[in-house]
Nucleic acid binder design. Sequence first.
DNA 1: CATATATGAACGGTCGTTCGTTCGTAGTAA
DNA 2: TTACTACGAACGAACGACCGTTCATATATG
Lengths: 215, 215
Amino acid sequence: MTKKTKIGKTAPAANLDRILAAASDLFTRQGFHGTSTRDIAAQAGVSLGNIYNYFGTKEEVFVSLLEKYEKEYFSPDQPLIKALSSTAFPDNIEQLGFASRETVEKFSAYILLIYVDVVEFKARHVAKLFSNMRAGYSAALKSAEAKPHHKPRSKVAPDVDPVAALMMVTWNYSNYFIMEKLFKVKGHYGLGDTEAVKLFARVFKRGILAGGRSC
Amino acid sequence: MTKKTKIGKTAPAANLDRILAAASDLFTRQGFHGTSTRDIAAQAGVSLGNIYNYFGTKEEVFVSLLEKYEKEYFSPDQPLIKALSSTAFPDNIEQLGFASRETVEKFSAYILLIYVDVVEFKARHVAKLFSNMRAGYSAALKSAEAKPHHKPRSKVAPDVDPVAALMMVTWNYSNYFIMEKLFKVKGHYGLGDTEAVKLFARVFKRGILAGGRSC
DNA sequence: CATATATGAACGGTCGTTCGTTCGTAGTAA
DNA sequence: TTACTACGAACGAACGACCGTTCATATATG
């Protein structure tokens, strides 16, 4: 018997969490306008009115989910963020591929909710994520280069902007796995995940690195 | 005075076309479930009930739009299709970039409707577009190579699958311009359209072409 | 006349949200 | 212990608005 509350047999799982989980599942499967508050309440095992003890409107539930996922997505221990900051570009080209794959799978709900926002809210709630995108990559690149243990092995070709190249690589991987995992178009290049990452890495290394013809 | 109908002062623009135009505009701005049949009727300048003289349900309006755009999108005189079939990959890498830009702008409504379908219908209506994607690119590549006037100038590196490389290039460009034009993230790489296409082309040529180090 | 097109009121549902009420627990005075 | 108070959490009926669709009716064309 703890002080706070009786911990029952079936882990309590606060109703707030169950509402968010249900909303996330439904919004990503049927969109925002295609999901009713009654759907959410039913799936969460909560009364209709109780949702409004936690949120003012249905849209607030949606925004709250975006904020929760965004915070988690950009935390330093997430695979893509780690890959961006641990080793400096362009030494991490292949690593970025596997990190993108992991990230797309782990944050599939978040990415789908971003698409929902784009389609149903004109990207109103994620607009600030999109603007200054280059600045974010630029900062990640600089901070990785500034790490004490960083020893630059490779250089970017002189006719290639390193930040743009980093974005090109990262987005190429992410979009590939978004198509693959979220839009469920399995093997759309005719390749497995690992083969695809390796192919992309070969092309990018040869295309981006200075001097290195054969990777 | 033509035979068909009296051409009035305000070009008649058959009601069917006005319904489709209004639906396209609204579906792309607020999604399917966020758009009501009354919205469509009002914007088309048509009575509510008249929509049902042309379509059985609201979903039929949506599907009809997808079909109309798909037909147009894949017609041989569209920029991307032309670029894919006129000159054979990899001699058209830069050309594919500008064709992608043109196509994304011209078919912005179509692409947005595809996203709507993914988000609100689990890609039900565009699933067949997605499957066998590689087969489509493979066929385009073959047919371009078979053209009588085709003289292969460049070869793809031996460690690169030509079809996958063609898809990689095309999707890279398309996704860049979808972000740029449809998600309205202007200059998100910190580059103008032309500079971006040229940067991507430099990287891809060096990465994909056999032997050609400096493009 | 017949036929195709167009109208908008009306129908049965569902929507997001509100609100009066009940439940469950903690605190406290007796 | 018991009795009472206090209060956030939870409930679900109810509200008014809006939904997709139908249909009786009207209009225009031939």
